[in-house]
Write a protein that binds this DNA or RNA. Sequence first.
DNA 1: TAGATTGTTAATCGATTAACAATC
DNA 2: TAGATTGTTAATCGATTAACAATC
Lengths: 185, 185
Amino acid sequence: MEAQGCRWISSNMIAGYLDLTPSTIRQDIKYLGRIDSSSFGYNAGSFRLVLEKTLGISSGANLALVGIGSIGSALIHYKGFREKNFCIKALFDKREELIGTQIEGIGVFPVGRMAEVIKRERITIGVIATPAESAQSVADLLVAANIKGIWNFAPINLRVPPQVIIENVNLLPSLFTLAFKIKNA
Amino acid sequence: MEAQGCRWISSNMIAGYLDLTPSTIRQDIKYLGRIDSSSFGYNAGSFRLVLEKTLGISSGANLALVGIGSIGSALIHYKGFREKNFCIKALFDKREELIGTQIEGIGVFPVGRMAEVIKRERITIGVIATPAESAQSVADLLVAANIKGIWNFAPINLRVPPQVIIENVNLLPSLFTLAFKIKNA
DNA sequence: TAGATTGTTAATCGATTAACAATC
DNA sequence: TAGATTGTTAATCGATTAACAATC
């Protein structure tokens, strides 16, 4: 909404977008701390800053991406991460011909150098974009390299120590939701 | 769980996966209709069938994908759709050199032929994988071609008539969630 | 000032949980 | 049969909503 030129955002506007009542929105906003507000609503910039701070996303993180297939390529070329200070610092793949090359300015390393590179580049998040068969072994390597979280695109339930956070990505539920809404329209 | 060899699934097991109580799981299951059950829990196959039927995803749908960039390619190569009877029947791109070629056995057409191809192939869902700048005009073409739903990967709020269902995909919230959990671990 | 919105309290509503007889 | 789980009712808990004084 801020990007679209809104300077003030009211609980009414948000409620409209999310299909909730303004009351609910205001109750929830109470958890965020004080936001610059007026009789026009909440100040857009102040609101975004408080949200980013609360969510802890303002500082971003350094990522390592493992597996340069079609999903990996899509992530490498996606510009949205950089804008939010999430930065892919290293790529890993097992194909010899890719090692030492650069994609979008990011170096490709062999998986054997994972621990070293992750430490040097202060990487805290590992992205698994390999086939399902390799995903668990990659997760093991990332854990051994002291990664804090894994963003997993492989369709498999990874086993990792409890201190490592896993976030799985699966597009099928979103497609199912669409199909369901079409059927019940 | 069924794929991993479970023949019987108890509300306890599901509760463990989802971090809820068995009571909540059983209350929710009541909405699905009768599922074959025993003192081991619910029959895995029966459960999946009832879920698929309730969600209306068992029959799948035919898709048209517009925009063969890195995201489009990842979707084309993803095998998970086919397994659930969701099938990409046609590709559209504005690059002349791609028209008439095939990718993974799927033909590439010019956007000008969208209405014709969508009708012929009985396509009900359009996938927008173009840059944000082209997304709205593609959506307009899809709507004109009588599409029922749009699976939108472009970072933009599409304007379509109310009878067309939109499902937006954005990976950033998932990455933000991971970053948040790491920060608050 | 007049109009609109926030911030907050209290009331309502619905979701979660506990408990247990019935079932396999 | 014995043990475990479902299916369901009733109780509890928390989220949503309404309402309105305070504020801009």
